[in-house]
Computed example of a mutant assay.
Amino acid sequence: MTVGVALNATDTDNQIDASVRLAEEAAAAGLRSAWFGQTFGADSPQLAAIAGRAVPGLQVGTSAIPVFGRHPLTVAGQALTAQAATHGRYHLGLALGTKFLTEGGFGLPFERPVARLREFLTALRQLTETGTADFHGELLTAATPIPARVPGADAGVPVLVAAMGPQALRASGELADGILPYLAGPRALAEHIVPAVTAAAEAAGRPAPRIVALVHGVVTDDVDAVREKATEQLAFYEQIPSYARVIELSGGKRAVDAAVIGDERTVAEEVRRYRDAGATEVVFAGTEIAGDADRLRTWDLLGSLAG
Rank of each mutant, 00 (worst) to 15 (best):
P72E: 08
P113M: 11
H91S: 12
A64P: 01
R53P: 00
V55W: 08
G69N: 13
A82V: 04
G104V: 06
F68W: 12
F110C: 14
V55P: 07
T98Y: 00
Y90K: 02
T81A: 14
F110V: 14
G104H: 07
F100C: 00
L101W: 11
A79L: 09
G97E: 13
Q83W: 00
A82R: 03
I65W: 08
A84I: 11
P72Q: 08
L73R: 06
H71M: 09
S63P: 00
S63H: 04
G77S: 10
L94V: 07
V55S: 09
T86S: 10
F68C: 12
G57I: 11
L108T: 15
L96N: 05
T86A: 07
Q83G: 06
A64D: 02
A82K: 04
A79I: 08
A54E: 10
L92M: 06
R53Y: 03
G69L: 09
E103Y: 13
A84W: 11
T62A: 02
E103H: 12
L101N: 10
A85S: 14
L58W: 03
L73K: 02
L92E: 05
H87D: 15
A95E: 07
G77E: 03
L101Q: 14
G77Y: 03
H87M: 09
G77D: 04
E103M: 13
G88L: 08
G93T: 08
H87L: 12
P113K: 10
T81F: 08
H91G: 00
F100T: 14
A79T: 09
A76T: 04
V55Y: 08
L94Y: 05
G107L: 14
Q59Y: 00
L92I: 05
G57V: 11
A76N: 03
G104F: 06
L108A: 15
H87C: 12
L73G: 07
T62G: 01
G104D: 06
A54K: 10
H71E: 15
F106Q: 11
A64W: 06
I65K: 07
Y90W: 02
T62N: 03
P72I: 09
L96A: 10
K99I: 05
G93H: 09
E111F: 11
R112V: 13
R89P: 00
V60Y: 03
L96M: 13
I65T: 08
E103L: 13
L96K: 05
P72N: 10
G52R: 06
T102N: 10
R53N: 10
Y90H: 09
R89M: 00
E103F: 13
F110Y: 15
T81P: 00
R53D: 11
A85Q: 12
S63Q: 04
G97N: 13
T102S: 12
V67Q: 12
I65M: 10
L73M: 15
